[in-house]
């Protein structure tokens, strides 16, 4: 809603590999799932092939509530320093979700001048192209 995409300059696609595929499959189905170690239960983001705590390669995707608070943010003001296909200004946020990990995404309903660290937010999904869905965050209970 607050992001304006230029359809002539396609948004870069995520690179899907065997380690992160579950995350992006979930996003496409409008579900937020997080990697979890099957052996020791550590919740891990960003996805990776091995649990850094117990070195197990057994993992599963666990559904997340998708609620959290804005941990850090930047506002891209100068167009040349941002992506040419997204109209500046726009925000990039790191959200700490209740499961304890952080997720990088954009905002859905908060304008750049209104972004604050600590604002409660929840996940939503934006189908920005036929073949591309991105996770975004909106104000909690909005």
């Amino acid at each position: 809603m607050v992001m304006e995409y230029n359809p002539k300059i396609p948004t870069l696609r995520p690179y899907i590999d065997p380690d992160n595929q579950g995350f992006w499959d979930g996003v496409r189905e409008h579900r937020l799932v997080i990697q979890k170690c099957k052996d020791c239960g550590l919740v891990i983001h960003r996805p990776r092939p091995m649990c850094p705590r117990c070195l197990s390669t057994e993992r599963e995707w666990t559904p997340s509530m998708g609620k959290g608070v804005i941990y850090a943010y930047v506002n891209v003001i100068y167009q040349n320093a941002g992506y040419p296909g997204i109209k500046a200004p726009y925000s990039v946020v790191v959200v700490e979700i209740t499961e304890g990990v952080r997720i990088l995404a954009n905002l859905y309903d908060i304008e750049p001048e209104g972004v604050r660290i600590g604002t409660p937010v929840e996940i939503c999904f934006d189908d920005i192209a036929d073949d591309l869905t991105l996770p975004k965050f909106k104000r909690l209970n909005s």
């Binding site: 992001m3 396609p10 948004t11 696609r13 899907i16 960003r46 990039v92 990088l104 995404a105």
Partner: peptide, 21 residues
């Protein structure tokens, strides 16, 4: 159309694409 690696693929779709950012 596809960012080069998983790492870039996880940030570039959000327009988080340059060192100052």
């Amino acid at each position: 159309m596809t960012a080069p690696r998983d790492h870039f693929g996880s940030i570039l779709p959000f327009g988080h694409c340059t060192p100052p950012g």
